[in-house]
Design a protein around this nucleic acid. Structure first.
Lengths: 211, 211
DNA sequence: AGTATTATGACATCGAGTGTCATAACCAGT
DNA sequence: ACTGGTTATGACACTCGATGTCATAATACT
């Protein structure tokens, strides 16, 4: 009994009976496995739905790190987040089902606050670097939470509108909400340029009106 | 045994032993009341901490409704949200403790997603009216989620920096994140003005180009 | 007083999650 | 193939939050 198989069986039951109405015992029984074994594969019932979200997150961090410094903060976030949420067509159906559970089942909605936190911190780290502030300070946190909010809104829009494209919704939502952060970044860049001699900050010169 | 008294006893125990380490039985025992009675006063253990959040929310809705139409969306939200979070000095200590629990205890962080949802919907309703869109559509939802994100970031900043003022943090965070929405509102206003005669869009009639 | 309503308490039960221990499956090395 | 050690599994007991049920105590109404 592999973790993947267990997840599949669980999803089947969730689809047939609903998430809350499906007990861990049912999943274990259906899989022909002891209840205790289920909890060795998954830390919790909610974990089944979230799958390998945490590992996936490293890709977002890496992708953000690879963005050239001349790309504006808002654009970098938008492009990377859209990319991060690109799902291979073969998995689209399962992804949709997964997100529908996460965004509609109360237990999972609640759990999401914890899961998204790691996502948010990745974005805050990037924003902090760009704004020249610690990632835990107010503005990077605001940027990260706004990006997160926009992404969730986009997901809900996608689920509510059959036929809509997730990536378009994400792009539109992020464009809409991040457009206000350009000024702050311009100022941060100016600050860092006067503080450090040219060239000290890698490849960054010549991007904008401040030059 | 009043609800208030029970809440006080519970907070005492939470402070002394931590939230997770305090069982409902302990609170009930300490209050000299049956476990079942506790659950009649509070729907759940988490409910104790959240207090009367839901009722408080009506005030935000009313306050938003009272904002003159000429005030910009971003400014209206900022002012109302800052006001909404104004706490009388006598309750500041308890409010701080409450928010510290909510923002640091995992169980409560998780629960927050559900509680904030009502808050978010109040804001989305207002934003939807201003943007000339249903409150459930993408942009009002993005505005609301961004405002929510900014408010939470402000709260975390406030808790992390002793001596800082909550209202200043909220004002700064909201100013920072909502500044980008001005363009969208301008356009919506222009649209509605060409579609309906002046004055019609005061508080709700003619809520769309479909007329 | 007597009666209806409501609040409380004493159960019982469910379901998620955890700790513990015995045993079964597996994988070396010889 | 046998042995010894590691790891996966299962059986069991337990905690704790939450809910349902029913009897009884407190209260309000007339």
């Amino acid at each position: 009994m592999s973790r993947d198989e267990l997840e599949r069986i669980a999803f089947d039951l969730f689809a047939r009976r609903g998430f809350s109405e499906t007990t861990v015992d049912m999943v274990a029984d259906e899989a022909g496995v002891a209840r205790r074994t289920f909890f060795r594969y998954f830390h919790s019932k909610n974990d089944v739905v979230w799958g390998s979200f945490d590992e996936h997150l490293d890709k977002l961090r890496a992708r953000l790190a690879s963005v050239p410094a001349r790309t504006a903060l808002a654009e970098a976030l938008r492009v990377c987040i859209v990319e991060f949420n690109q799902v291979p067509p073969a998995e689209l159906r399962r992804h949709r089902k997964r997100m529908q559970l996460i965004l509609t089942v109360p237990e999972l909605q609640a759990d999401s606050a914890l899961r998204y936190s790691a996502w948010k911190d990745v974005v805050a780290e990037f924003a902090g670097a760009r704004l020249g502030e610690p990632s835990g300070s107010l503005r990077p946190q605001v940027v990260a939470r706004c990006a997160l909010g926009a992404a969730i809104a986009a997901y809900e829009h996608w689920l509510a509108s059959p036929g809509s494209a997730l990536t378009s919704a994400l792009d539109e939502a992020l464009r809409f909400c991040l457009s206000g952060f350009a000024g702050a970044e311009r100022e941060a860049t100016r600050r860092s340029r006067t503080a450090a001699p040219a060239g000290a900050r890698g490849r960054r010169e010549g991007r904008g009106p401040a030059g």
